[in-house]
Simulated assay, not measured.
Amino acid sequence: MTLISDQFVPARAPYSVVLKQGQTMRIIDLESQQAVDALFYNAQDTSERYSAQDTLAAQALQGGRYDLTTGAVLRSNEGRPMVTLTADSCGFHDSCAGACSCESNIVRFGYETRFMHSCRENFLTELAKYGMDKRDLVSNVNFFMNVPIRPNGELTVDDGVSEPGGYVEFIADMDVLVVISNCPQVNNPCNGFTPTPIQILISG
């Protein structure tokens, strides 16, 4: 495959790109323990977008995993494959815990965190470039984020397990708009309390 793009995404920053069908994206966690939030839309019709419910329901029929790893197919709200994970050094990625926002920061960490930068702000910045707004925010994937489910059903954000240079790779099953927030969260251990840069390689 031919390298099309090699992009450095700074800590806390957003990024977006249209990945053509058959192209591959590799997200590299350069320094370890960096959560990368991602949204997916059909680039030809953005009303079709990633659905955690459809994705996890399909996985339940194939063994019941609630997380994502190599072989996982991310499905749209129409049940169609959007991207397929083809390589993964981490072993699991979250699709349940959602993205941080000013509102969730207040609830989880106190009113003084209200104005801290969040993934929701990053998403809205990138979506505006494509004529979309907060009404187009949907469930997201949290690459490299360690979110175990406790025996009582509680979701807990634990320390990330990705090593420096850890990666996840996926191939586009349709032309797909990928919107990324290199998570700025500093109040829980999803980024090791210190957001760091990532690298994104696109091949085709």
Rank of each mutant, 00 (worst) to 15 (best):
A97L: 07
A60H: 11
E126P: 01
A52M: 08
T55E: 12
S104M: 13
A58E: 12
Q53C: 05
T70D: 11
L85M: 13
R80W: 06
F115S: 14
A60I: 02
T125A: 13
A99K: 00
E112C: 04
T46F: 04
M82D: 05
A43M: 13
M116N: 15
F109K: 07
L124W: 03
R80M: 09
L61W: 07
N122M: 07
R114G: 03
T69G: 09
G63E: 06
S51W: 04
R114Y: 07
Q53I: 08
D94Y: 03
Y41S: 07
D45K: 12
R114E: 14
M82A: 06
R75Y: 10
G98L: 11
Q44G: 12
G71F: 03
I106S: 03
E48M: 11
T84W: 02
A52H: 00
T84M: 11
Q62E: 14
C96R: 08
L127F: 04
D88T: 12
L56M: 15
R49G: 01
A43G: 12
F115P: 02
Y50P: 09
R114I: 03
L127Y: 01
K129N: 15
G91M: 13
C90T: 15
Y66S: 10
F123A: 06
G64N: 14
G98V: 11
S76W: 01
L124F: 06
A52R: 06
T113A: 12
A97S: 10
Q44E: 15
D54W: 00
F109T: 04
L74R: 04
E48T: 12
L74S: 12
L127D: 03
T113C: 05
N105A: 14
Q59N: 15
D54Q: 13
Q62M: 11
F123W: 06
A57Q: 13
L85H: 05
E103P: 00
C119R: 04
K129R: 15
F92P: 00
L68N: 01
P81E: 14
L74W: 03
D88N: 10
C102D: 06
F115N: 15
G98P: 04
Q53M: 07
V107N: 09
T113E: 11
E121S: 11
E112F: 05
E121P: 00
T46P: 02
F109R: 06
Q44A: 11
S101H: 08
A52T: 03
D54E: 15
A38F: 07
A60E: 14
D88W: 04
A128H: 12
N122D: 14
N105I: 00
T125P: 00
T84D: 09
L56Y: 07
G63K: 11
A87N: 14
R49L: 07
V73G: 07
A57S: 14
A87R: 15
G64E: 08
S89E: 08
G79Y: 13
T86L: 07
